[in-house]
Structures are given as structure tokens and as C-alpha cells.
Write a protein that binds this DNA or RNA. Structure first.
Length: 833
DNA sequence: GACCTGCTGCGGGCTG
């Protein structure tokens, strides 16, 4: 394979590596033959070189174009800024190596330049890119969109290769659809479409991912078999999960049984037995809490050990702990509180600088463990991590694999993971996810079809710079996979909206963004369209978050961020925990919280309300099917099967006992074909229905809407109907003569579609999604947009129908359209994404 | 009763 490279490249590679990996050889073959290529390989298998080396070799051998605007020939797009920075660093070695090899060989030394353009790039560097573009530009999807929507796009006119990293992470999202359109816009400015190289972790189905990457063109798939194996075990640290130790202060009367102490100790012990550990949790709050507890345990251990030298060495030897207690004491100084000596918390609300620092101290071996949310799931190589711990079942098999794959990054190494269920109801999910991780049974991905809000935004951006004949614009859009089947009706509806022709007067507050000359079928932007696109582009909705800054600092140092609701519940003087440190609130301004460090002080745990992603239906079905198989077997066979799937004795025993008790209580168990409905009176005497359905919140959510609607019609009451991943809980005031039965939640397929469609428009979810979609479509009036993005923090509320569920109802009824027609005409409806 | 819900990114074009 190497013979197709130039001499200098060959020299360098031969000196630096024994041989190309399978992914590299396959990628270079496909790329060298001029195909689009999708390279599926785990991180750490030489992916960067697989994607880049062919281009580097060509850049090294070909003369630099005379026209500086044609100089930039390779574009790299990463969904994460951190990864972009990492790639820039990883390119330095091959670039220097090839240059040195060329010097030794006496051939001309290439001078390949690399530039970066992300939100962190200062304005002067951005301008510099426009004047003197580098050979290779590293960027993000959002920054690429900005480049394409400014005069700087001229400096992309020479691009020949586009590398899209972590394709699997964007393909199934609106962010991916947005990127797909940006890539088509780029191709449209080039003499010939750029060659696309996609890099991805394991994905299913591969055809869908390839189609997303290539749009209308063929993509060569490079997917070498990987020898990499994973080992996942499910461990329960207590013999009987119904008999738990009590925690809490007895005098406060808050003692309650909890599995946490047992889990914390086990995790603490595991950290001590490994080089570097990443502990994943499913929420920022539990990451903070577990992290704090681990550091308390470390402080306790060092305190106990400092009693005598004998105890000291006994502890070190007995527990096999790697760090010396004396070292902990030295670092912590005074023995106040629990300094973050063995673990730090890492999640989306910890500031970027802090996270970078935490990542570096884990990589360098200074820090034994990091407790993270999915913030560490993707991205940069975490080096010598040899154990991944997962608290609670991971949200999906794909996420679980991605997380456990963070351990044992070296080629051929085994990735080890330990999953700790948090409660009995969590046991089965843990067992099934662990089994499916071993089988590589990740959930299927599907890219969104025709997300019209994304389309609207890109159309505004396109016509802001050039007039577009409708037919050309339509052809460009349909070359992108997510819009390949875009019907004329939908495109025209979007253009109607953007040009000010609305289906009802309720839209009158919208501002037209373009002019559609129907005689000439020509689209042109209105004044301000370009500015709007660059100031409000992208697909990620803004959330109401308060920045947390250090008070009195000369340059505002960002500590992290807090949810607005957490801030409303806080007062000056309160102490809370963020990033394993206590902070005292000094001041609360309209959009930020100023704090000072309060080490050792008792602190509140912060909370954030996040999205509710919901269990994938595919995983829900698998859990149900597994349960059905399990109950058909006798206890011995079933237990043996669970043990073979990675459960330890106590995990298997607890699960079997749980299933037995449940079966004794209800006779049937909820599986992929069975829904179990339990009815009982709660402590207030109200009826409650517990509908057990393991298919996940994506099914149970819409179902709950229909149930709520039926209750309103039947009993005239607004009953509480709460969906979750495992079912629906209905609470019904004791007004009904007849106690509700299972028929309350049974629907005909025909009927439920109609009920859900009718109920969706008045749901809170709809209102919030509608606002997001309208903002993404660049349709909101400027004042509303500004207010919406600072909603809550500035005290200003955007006016009228765009904000409240109540007025949304009016809006819907005035539009006098069934939900389905409304869906296409408004460009905006996205039900559960 | 126990358990108690994620992350990603982020102006350009003008005037003075």
C-alpha cells in the first residue's frame, strides 16, 4: 500500500510505524482510487492518519497553487471543538516527519500549513484565513456554515477533500442535516465536488450512514474486522437489594436505606486497583455527588492510615491501593473537607477550561479517576484509562459501547467495564445492555428526513449571498441525503413562509426573510438576511443557563453554569457544589452568578433539568424479549444464562428474586408483547394505574397524551399522567363511580394516531419544540429572538403566541388545520425530535 | 421503599 505514496511520506511512515493498520490500508486504497470513503474504526486505530495521510502526501508533492484563494485544499470538520484542537496537535508529528524525511532525501521540503476556525478563533485570525488560507482548515459544522455564509467562502474555492469526523455522532440529528446541506453548498462553489471521507465508530446500518455521508454519490465503505474485545460485568455490591444500610443524620430524621454507600465503596476500591478510571453516570447531579463521596472516602482512608506507619502500609498492601496515603496528605494540606484528590467531576456544566484541565490530569496519571456524564463519551483519546465504571444502565447499547471503549485504547487491548445497577428495577436493563454490548448489538441509526427548519435556515443563508433560481436551489438541496425525497409541496411551503405568505393571520408576527419572484422563479434575500443567518445559525437550541463566574476576578473566570431554576431557588450566601468544589454565592445578576470559593463548607448539590432522551425502542424491545425468555426458563438455567452474560452472583440473585416477587404479585411480567396494568389506591385514597411497558419513553410519551385526553373526555378531570421509560403512571381523583380498568389505556391503532395528533398541539412539549423550530428556521422577529435566548435571565419575556402553551392553543385553532396539514405548512413541528 | 434523567456550538460587514 505504501508504494502509492511519495518517497518522503514512505520514509517517515516506515520509520514511525511497523505497518499500516487495516483501517489505514483500506482507507488509503479507497481514497487513492478517488472514491468517497466511510471509514469505520474505533478511536486509537490510527484514524487521523487513515483520513489525512493521502492528502498530506499530495499536498507535500504538489506545488502550492499560485492563487492564495485556491490554497486551502483539505477541510476537516469535527463536531467537537476539543477534538478539533486534538487533531491539529496530532497533525504536527506527521507534518514534521515528512518534512525531515524530505530534507534527508534531498527532495524539496514541503511547507504544509494548518489553520483552525471555530468559535474560539479570534477575529484577526478569521480575517487572516480570508487573505492567506492554510492548506488544511480544521473547523466545526457551525463554523463551516458561517464561512459559507460570508465573503470568506471564496477562500474555500480550492477544497478537494473534506474529512468529516465522528459521523455517527451527527448523522441522526438535525445538526447532521444542517452539515449535509453545508457540504452541498460547498460543492456547489467548487469546480468539482470534493471527495468526502467520513470517520465513524461502529454504526448500524452502515448503508444508511454511507448514504448520509455521500448524499447522491456512491461511498466506499472501509470496515476492517476489529480484534478488539470488551468485557462487561454487572455487579451488585449487596447480597439483597431490599435489605440496605441506612444513611443520613438520625437527628434530622432523614435516615433512609440506600445502595449508594455500598456502590461508592466498591467504586473507590476499583479506582485503587487501576491506573486510570472513568466513572460514567447518567446525570450531572449524580456525577457531582459520587465524585464528592469518592473524595471523602479518600480523605477518610488517609486519615485512618496516618495513625501509624504500620496501619499505613497495611492499608496500602491490603487494599492494593496505588497511591500512598502520605501523598494525599501532602496534597490536601489541612485536613478540611474532602479535596478532590482521587476524582474530579466532568460534565457539560463544568467550564471548558476546567474540563480541559481535568482531562489532562487524568491523561498524565496525576488524577486516578474522573466521574463524568456523556461529556467524555466522544472525542479525544483519554490515554491510559484501563477501567470504565458505569452507574445505572447506560442510556443505550451504542452509548454503553462508546463509554466502555474509552478503556484499553491501545491496539489489541481489552476494554473493561463494570456496571452498577442503582435499584432492582434497573437490574434487567443493565443485564440486557451488557449482553448486547458483548454482541455489538447497537441500535440502528436513521438520519432525519426533511427537517424543514434546517432547510429554512440554509435557504436564508444561501439567498442572503446570491440570488438563486428555484430549480437550482431545489436540485442542490436534494443532493443532500436528508432532503433527497423532499416533495415540491414542502419546499414551496417553506418558501411561502420565508417570503411572507402565511397560511393564517396568526403568523403575522413573522418577518419575511426573502423575496420569491414567482414569475422568474428567482429567490433573493431581504436586507438583513445575511446578518440574521450568521448571528443565529446552527441547530442546537439555546437553553436558559446562568454562567457562574468568580467574583472580583480581574478577568471574569468562568467556573461553570447553573440551571435557571436552580438559580431562582438560590440566595446570596448559599453554598453549592460545582466541579468538586464548594462555591459561595456573592451576587446574582440577570444572566450570571458570581461566586467565591468556599472550601470545606457544607454545600447544596446543584441540579440541571436536561432533555429526556428516552430509551431507544429497539432496546426496549430487546429488554422485553429477554425478560420473556428468562421467565420461560427454570431458575437454574436462567441464573446460569445471566451469569454467562456478565452478572455476578449477587446481581443474578437479586434479579431472579425481583422477577419472582413481581410474578407472584401480578402473575404476568411486562415484556415485548405484554403490557401489565396494576391498579391500587394511594395513601390519599385516589386511584392509581401503573401501566408497565418497557418500550421506552418514546412510546410511552405519546401514549400518555392519549390516555390524558381520554380521561378528560370521560371524567372531565385533568388527571396526572406521567410517562417514563418503563411505563405510565396515572393518578385519578376518587370521583369516578367505576374504578378505572385496563380498558382506559387500550386504544385502536386508528384511534390513537388521531388522539395523539389532536393532543400534541396543546402539550407543553409542543410549545417548547415549536419555539426551538421557529428559532432554527430564522423566522422569529429579532426582538423575540433576543428575548427568547435570554428568557428568564433578563426578566423580559418574548411577546405573544410564540411563548406560551396557552396562546399556542389559540394559534392552532385559528389556523383551522388538522395536525398533519399543519405539520407541513408550518415547517416547525418536531414531535420527539 | 430503594433509584430520581445528556451533550454538542456560537457574527460579518460596515463606518470612523
Amino acid at each position: 500500500m505504501l508504494e502509492r505514496f511519495g518517497q518522503a511520506t514512505r520514509e517517515w511512515f516506515g520509520a514511525a510505524f511497523a505497518a499500516p493498520t487495516d483501517a489505514q490500508a483500506g482507507a488509503w486504497r479507497a481514497i487513492g482510487d478517488g472514491h468517497h470513503a466511510l471509514v469505520v474504526a474505533p478511536t486509537g486505530s490510527g484514524k487521523t492518519l487513515a483520513a489525512f495521510l493521502w492528502s498530506l502526501d499530495r499536498l507535500a508533492r504538489e506545488p502550492v497553487p499560485a492563487d492564495p484563494k485556491r490554497r486551502c485544499r483539505v477541510l476537516y470538520v469535527s463536531p467537537l471543538k476539543a477534538l478539533a484542537v486534538d487533531v491539529e496537535r496530532n497533525l504536527r508529528a506527521p507534518l514534521a516527519g515528512i518534512r525531515h524525511a524530505a530534507a534527508r532525501l534531498g527532495v524539496p521540503q514541503p511547507d504544509i500549513t494548518v489553520g483552525m476556525r471555530t468559535g474560539d478563533t479570534p477575529a484577526d485570525e478569521r480575517r487572516a484565513f480570508q487573505r492567506t488560507p492554510p492548506d488544511i482548515l480544521i473547523t466545526t459544522p457551525e463554523s463551516l456554515f458561517l464561512l459559507l455564509t460570508s465573503a470568506a467562502r471564496e477562500s474555500l474555492a480550492g477544497v478537494e477533500t473534506v474529512i468529516i469526523d465522528e459521523v455517527h455522532a451527527v448523522a441522526a440529528t438535525k445538526r447532521g442535516a444542517h452539515l449535509a446541506l453545508s457540504l452541498e453548498r460547498l460543492d456547489a462553489m467548487l469546480p468539482r465536488p470534493a471527495q468526502r471521507i467520513g470517520l465513524s465508530a461502529t454504526v448500524r446500518p452502515i448503508e444508511e450512514t454511507a448514504r448520509f455521508l455521500g448524499g447522491s454519490s456512491h461511498v466506499e465503505v472501509v470496515q476492517p474486522r476489529t480484534a478488539k474485545t470488551i468485557e462487561v460485568s454487572v455487579q451488585v455490591p449487596v447480597e439483597d437489594m431490599t435489605q440496605l444500610d441506612e444513611v443520613g443524620e438520625p437527628e434530622e430524621g432523614s435516615r433512609r436505606a440506600s445502595i449508594w454507600p455500598a456502590v461508592e465503596e466498591r467504586v473507590f476500591d476499583l479506582i485503587g486497583r487501576h491506573q486510570s478510571t472513568i466513572v460514567f453516570t447518567n446525570s450531572r447531579r449524580s456525577a457531582e455527588r459520587l465524585c464528592a463521596r469518592l473524595n471523602e472516602l479518600a480523605a477518610d482512608a488517609s486519615l485512618a492510615a496516618s495513625g501509624s506507619a504500620a496501619a499505613d502500609s497495611a492499608l496500602a498492601a491490603g487494599q492494593g491501593t496505588r497511591w500512598m496515603p502520605a501523598a494525599i496528605m501532602a496534597q490536601s494540606g489541612a485536613a478540611t473537607g474532602a479535596p478532590p484528590v482521587i476524582a474530579r467531576a466532568h460534565h457539560g456544566s463544568v467550564s471548558r477550561e476546567e474540563r480541559k484541565h481535568i482531562e489532562e490530569s487524568l491523561k498524565s496519571g496525576q488524577l486516578p479517576a474522573v466521574v463524568a456524564t456523556s461529556s467524555l463519551e466522544l472525542g479525544i483519546d483519554m490515554g491510559s484509562v484501563d477501567l470504565v465504571v458505569q452507574i445505572e444502565a447506560p442510556p443505550s447499547v451504542a452509548a454503553g459501547l462508546q463509554r466502555v471503549g474509552r478503556a484499553g485504547h491501545q491496539v489489541g487491548a481489552v476494554s473493561r467495564g463494570v456496571v452498577f445497577p442503582k435499584h432492582r428495577g434497573d437490574l434487567l436493563s443493565c443485564a440486557v445492555v451488557a449482553e448486547r454490548m458483548g454482541d455489538g448489538a447497537i441500535e440502528e441509526l436513521r438520519y432525519p428526513r426533511n427537517p424543514l427548519d434546517v432547510l429554512a435556515q440554509q435557504i436564508v443563508a444561501m439567498v442572503a449571498l446570491d440570488p438563486w433560481p428555484l430549480a437550482d436551489l431545489a436540485a442542490l438541496v436534494r443532493r443532500a441525503a436528508p432532503f433527497a425525497e423532499l416533495p415540491d409541496s414542502a419546499l414551496h411551503a417553506v418558501l411561502d413562509m420565508l417570503s411572507g405568505r402565511y397560511p393564517s393571520t396568526a403568523f403575522a408576527e413573522l418577518r419575511p426573510r426573502l423575496v420569491w419572484d414567482r414569475a422568474a422563479d428567482l429567490l433573493t434575500g431581504r436586507p438583513g438576511a445575511q446578518r440574521l443567518a450568521v448571528t443565529s445559525g446552527g441547530t442546537i437550541p439555546d437553553r436558559g443557563l446562568f454562567g457562574v463566574f468568580l467574583a472580583g476576578a480581574e478577568r471574569a473566570a468562568r467556573v461553570g453554569e447553573l440551571d435557571e431554576e436552580m438559580v431562582y431557588e438560590s440566595r446570596v450566601g448559599d453554598v453549592f457544589l460545582l466541579g468538586s468544589t464548594s462555591w459561595r454565592i456573592e451576587d446574582i445578576t440577570p444572566d450570571r452568578v458570581l461566586v467565591s470559593p468556599a472550601p470545606g463548607a457544607a454545600a447544596r448539590m446543584p441540579f440541571w433539568k436536561g432533555d429526556q432522551p428516552g430509551r431507544p425502542v429497539e432496546l426496549g424491545r430487546a429488554i422485553g424479549a429477554r425478560l420473556r425468555a428468562l421467565v420461560r426458563q427454570d431458575d437454574e438455567t436462567a441464573t446460569a444464562a445471566l451469569r454467562a452474560g456478565g452478572l455476578d452472583d449477587w446481581a443474578a440473585g437479586n434479579l431472579m428474586a425481583y422477577l419472582r416477587e413481581q410474578r407472584e404479585a401480578t402473575r404476568a411480567l411486562p415484556d415485548d408483547r405484554t403490557v401489565v396494568v396494576e391498579r391500587f389506591r394511594d395513601e390519599l385514597g385516589d386511584w392509581r394505574l401503573a401501566v408497565h411497558c418497557v418500550l421506552g419513553a418514546k412510546v410511552n410519551g405519546p401514549w400518555a397524551l392519549a390516555v390524558a385526553r381520554r380521561l378528560t373526555e370521560r371524567y372531565g378531570v385533568d388527571a396526572q399522567v406521567m410517562p417514563s421509560d418503563d411505563g405510565i403512571v396515572v393518578r385519578l381523583p376518587d370521583t369516578a363511580d367505576q374504578p378505572p380498568g385496563a380498558e382506559l389505556v387500550a386504544f385502536d391503532p386508528e384511534e390513537i394516531t388521531q388522539l395523539v395528533e389532536e393532543s400534541v398541539g396543546t402539550s407543553a412539549m409542543f410549545a417548547s419544540r415549536f419555539r426551538e423550530c421557529a428559532a432554527r428556521s430564522l423566522l422569529l422577529p429579532a426582538a423575540t429572538r433576543a428575548a427568547a435566548s435570554h428568557c428568564g435571565s433578563s426578566g423580559r419575556r418574548p411577546p405573544s403566541c410564540w411563548t406560551s402553551p396557552g396562546s399556542m392553543r389559540t394559534f392552532r385553532s385559528r389556523s383551522k388545520r388538522p395536525a398533519s396539514a399543519y405539520r407541513t405548512s408550518s415547517t416547525c413541528l418536531a414531535w420527539w425530535g
